[in-house]
Each structure stands twice: as C-alpha cells, then as structure tokens.
Write a protein that binds this DNA or RNA. Structure first.
Length: 332
DNA sequence: CGGATTTGACCCAT
DNA sequence: ATGGGTCAAATCCG
C-alpha cells in the first residue's frame, strides 16, 4: 500500500534529519538550527504516530543517536555538581534532559507526576530562571525524584527539563498505566493550567486526552553525573504527558531508548503504542553502573557514539518487557 | 484550612 | 567570593 511507501519515506526523512543533526555539532550558542531540526523531527514523529494510529505499525524509535547527538542544550556542565550542593553529596545522578519545544505554555513540563516546586533561581547566563521541583510524595512516600525546568535561552519555546533521581512513589506505576491507556485512547484537551500541580490526577488524564495534539520534538539526553556509586538508573518516567501532548509519544519511547541504549535490557519491544514498559522496580543493579559509565563517558558520547551506524540498529531495538528500573537508594 | 507556590536567605562546592 | 541548590516563612488559592 501506499501507506507503506509513505511510511518509508517518513522514516527515511527522519533518519536523515537525525544524521544531519548529528553532524551539526554546533556550539551551544547556535542552537537555533537544532531547534529547527528538532521540530522537523517532531513532525516526522507525528506523522509516523498518525500512521501508527491508522493501524500501521511503525517502529517508532527515532534513533537514539538523535538524542544523544543533540548538541544543543548543553547545560550539563554546571549540573554535574549541582545536584549535590547541599546535603546530597552522596549521589551521582542520572540526569535526563528533555527539551520540549513547540507549544510552550508557561508550564510546559508536565510529565504526569506530581511535582512540588521548592525553589527557583536565576542562572548565570540564562535568560530564564530555573525552577526546582521535587516529587510531591517526597515525604509521604519518600520519593526523591527531582527535576529542574528551565527555558532555553535560544528558544523560549523550548524547555529543558532535567530529571534526577527516580520516582519511588506509586505515581510511577500509575503513570505507566496511564500512559498505556493514553496511547490507546485519545481525546483531547490539551491544556492545563500552569502551576496546578496538585491536580495530578487531572493532569494525567489530560495527558492522556491530549495525546493527539500536535507536536514537536522532545529530546532527551542523558547525562551522567559524576559519581557512579549511587547512580540512579533511572528515570522512572515512562513517558510524559507532555510528550503525549505533543504527540511525540514516540519520542517518549525514545527516551527510554536511550536508556535502553545504555542497557538494552530496558527496552522492550513494543510498538510505541501498545506497551509501554512496565516499570518494574528492581533490577538494574549491575548494569546501572555500566550505564553510567557509558553515559558519562566522554561527553562526546552523547554526540556520536552510538551514532551513525547505530541508528538503524537502534531503530530495531525493541523494548524489553522487563524494564529494569529500580531505584536503589537515594537519599540525603 | 490545607496544600502548593513564591522568594529571599542560607548552605556548600568551586 | 561566587554560583547554584535547598530551605522555609509568607503568601496564594481552591
């Protein structure tokens, strides 16, 4: 069918764009082109997603390389230590950087988890303040997930979101579930008001509902921060509502892919729509460190390693049903 | 009234 | 000394 052909074309375009991106190792100051590329990719992803919805199965996994190669947004440097300014001297963190482009609401970053903002700070060299969030269930469930959200200087429509630590609260599972359903259902609703985090449940729904909107690319970049001792493997977030909203569901998967990349184990074969991995909270032990190492490796890793060649292979990667995310410890 | 956000102060690694 | 992360009192909001 023609759709098949269309699909192939789209995939082709996506891959090429990914390659282009990888070859564009622009200085962080020139992120604009990357932003555009991200948008292009977002369009591809959306198109593919649409096709998926129509029954076609597309491997939606934009190459990991894509994300890894994202040179833009490197705001990693400062972070390496940021995490531990105060009491958290102990941990190395796995950090996820996501970029939400496209519609930018004031509060673009809604990932389906309940976050409580605990601070905001102007960052040197940044035009926009960075917001600090921690899981609402920090106390009740001891969930130590944290995230930082900051608008990109170059493109205010892009939000850089960094996740640190992982959710140990139930949300996670919910989310996964939610997510799944999201993929299945799709209604619309799209927006939610910024700042109403306590409406998590609502948000999640919204997320689900929003699932068909529009999209733009979301990129994730995992960086590793120093210590390997306690690395939290993970990023518990299966997929985030934003992503859903953006319709880049696929990309959401990618995120995980990345992780998967690091440790293939994570990824499970799912067509993007159907299964999302279930977060099984416990595993990863051994290779966590590996991941870290891998990731943390040369920054360049991010840029090229798995890069070119892998794209194709990556695409083939499938998600591993057993999603080994676990959260070791991570406390102050 | 309870929970979330705001915001300046404080803490700590560089 | 400085920049970034967190705390916590004040404030906001449903």
């Amino acid at each position: 069918m023609e759709q098949e052909a269309l699909l192939n074309e789209l995939k082709e375009g996506r891959e090429v764009t990914n390659l282009l991106m990888k070859h564009l190792h622009l200085p962080s100051s020139h992120q604009t082109p990357l932003v555009l590329i991200e948008k292009i990719l977002g369009s591809y992803e959306n198109a593919l997603s649409i096709l998926n919805c129509n029954g076609l199965v597309v491997e939606t996994k934009p190459s990991l390389s894509t994300m890894e190669s994202l040179p833009s947004i490197d705001h990693s440097s400062p972070d390496k230590r940021d995490v531990s300014k105060k009491r958290k001297t102990s941990s190395g963190w796995t950090e996820q950087l996501r970029v939400y482009s496209g519609t930018s609401l004031d509060n673009p970053v809604d990932d389906g988890f309940c976050w409580r903002k605990y601070g905001q700070k102007a960052i040197l060299g940044s035009n926009f303040p960075r917001g600090y969030y921690r899981c609402t269930h920090r106390h009740s469930q001891g969930c130590l997930a944290i995230k930082q959200v900051q608008k990109s200087n170059d493109d205010p429509t892009i939000f850089e979101v960094k996740y640190k630590g992982r959710h140990t609260c139930n949300q996670t599972s919910h989310f996964a579930a939610t997510y799944v359903s999201v993929s299945t259902e799709s209604e619309n609703e799209g927006n939610y008001s910024p700042k109403r985090q306590h409406q998590l449940e609502v948000k999640q729904k919204q997320a689900q509902q929003a699932f068909s909107s529009f999209g733009s690319g979301i990129k994730v970049k995992t960086e590793d921060l120093d210590n390997k001792e306690d690395i939290f493997p993970s990023f518990p977030f299966p997929v985030e509502s934003e992503q859903v909203k953006n319709g880049s569901f696929v990309e959401a998967l990618m995120e995980n892919d990345i992780m998967g990349n690091l440790s293939p184990a994570f990824i499970s074969p799912a067509t993007s729509e159907s299964n999302y991995f279930s977060m099984s909270p416990c595993h990863m032990g051994s290779f966590e460190s590996d991941l870290t190492d891998i990731i943390s490796a040369p920054t360049s890793v991010t840029n090229s390693p798995i890069g070119d060649l892998d794209i194709s292979s990556l695409d083939k990667l499938e998600f591993d049903p057993s999603f080994p995310f676990d959260n070791p410890e991570f406390f102050y």
